[in-house]
């Protein structure tokens, strides 16, 4: 086994963990600035070591497993919640050279593996033998499943115009124009559905602290709880990079500025998406549970289907087909 195959994923793991610590800090800083306060600045210069301190704290914390909890399930749940979050990164092409697999059905793999997390959440909710956790798990499972469908539907527009599920080909196809413009409806639905997949405001029902039901990870303490948080932020990394690849043209430079390397463009677009996630979290109130479900089925899904129809129709129109038949 040549070393690159082994070292690559480990290196990616460290990059992702590094990103997660910086993302948590960056989120608290951004929300702090929006709320006209400096954000964490106590631990380390400008608060850089804040997340490290948090993780260390969680490590030291006592690892309580409720007595009547279903022990094997309870221990397994965080792992099942985290593994797909990381496994999904295998298929994301960061630049032409920097990618792990030329998977023919990249998107399908991504969307399929990412829905395994729901099982982990249900296990966590059920195993902790706590009525709040159970209600929270039910809610978040229902939410993630009902938003999975608009998420998938919104991507079909791109697949139609590119004609392949391979993420690398999708990025290649966006040399001239990024898919955010022709597929704007798809982008809107995708972005909103990804917000809900990540359980972020305005769809952060499960761990709505002011709500009665306090999330599926209410019984988890110490490092198991950290695992759930970790999987949430790795998903932010995965979802943001997928949005960049699908809609913002991966490593393609805008307006032909190709002297700056692709990775820099990728990171810039990626950070733009991550910033907008935090920005929305600081501004939006929370949607009610029944409104959330209704929104998914009655608004997002029809819009996504309409977007597919639009793409299919516009492919035939003579002038516009260069946008839609790549």
């Amino acid at each position: 086994m040549n070393p690159v195959l082994v070292m690559g994923p480990i290196l990616l793991l460290f990059v992702v963990l590094g990103f997660v610590t910086m993302a948590i800090l960056f989120e608290r800083k951004v929300i702090g600035w929006i709320q006209m306060r400096p954000g964490p600045n106590r631990v380390g210069p400008w608060g850089i070591l804040q997340t490290v301190a948090d993780v260390l704290k969680l490590l030291i914390k006592e690892d309580i497993i409720p007595s009547k909890a279903d022990k094997p399930l309870f221990k397994l749940a965080p792992a099942i919640a985290f593994i797909p979050a990381f496994a999904v990164l295998a298929v994301i092409p960061f630049t032409e050279s920097l990618q792990f697999s030329q998977f023919a059905v990249g998107i399908l793999y991504y969307l399929a593996v990412s829905s395994i997390t729901i099982i982990g959440i249900l296990m966590g909710g059920w195993a902790s033998n706590n009525k709040y956790a159970l209600l929270g798990a039910m809610r978040s499972a229902a939410q993630m499943i009902s938003y999975e469908i608009p998420l998938v539907m919104s991507v079909v527009g791109i697949i139609l115009s590119v004609g392949s599920l391979n993420l690398v080909e999708i990025v290649e196809a966006q040399k001239q124009v990024w898919f955010i413009f022709p597929q704007f409806l798809g982008f809107a639905v995708f972005f909103i559905a990804s917000l809900s997949e990540l359980n972020r405001t305005p769809f952060d029902l499960p761990e709505a602290e002011s709500e009665l039901v306090a999330g599926y990870h209410v019984e988890y303490t110490g490092f198991r709880f950290a695992f759930f948080m970790l999987s949430e932020y790795v998903y932010v990394f995965a979802m943001a990079s997928l949005t960049t690849v699908l809609f913002l043209g991966g490593w393609n430079a805008p307006f032909g500025l190709t002297m700056i390397p692709g990775i820099v463009w990728f990171v810039l677009k990626f950070l733009l998406i991550v910033f907008s996630l935090f920005w929305i979290r600081a501004t939006m109130p929370r949607v009610r549970v029944d409104q959330l479900m209704e929104f998914a089925w009655k608004v997002l899904l029809p819009v996504a289907l309409f977007n597919i129809l639009l793409t299919a129709v516009l492919q035939e129109v003579p002038y516009l087909d260069f946008l839609y038949r790549l």
């Binding site: 951004v30 702090g32 600035w33 929006i34 709320q35 006209m36 306060r37 400096p38 920005w279 929305i280 600081a282 501004t283 939006m284």
Partner: peptide
């Protein structure tokens, strides 16, 4: 309304912090 709200929070982000 949502977009207007986002505009306001972005504008507030540029303002200095008011905390002691």
């Amino acid at each position: 309304g949502l977009v207007k709200g986002l505009g306001i929070t972005l504008k507030n982000m540029t303002k200095p912090s008011v905390t002691h």
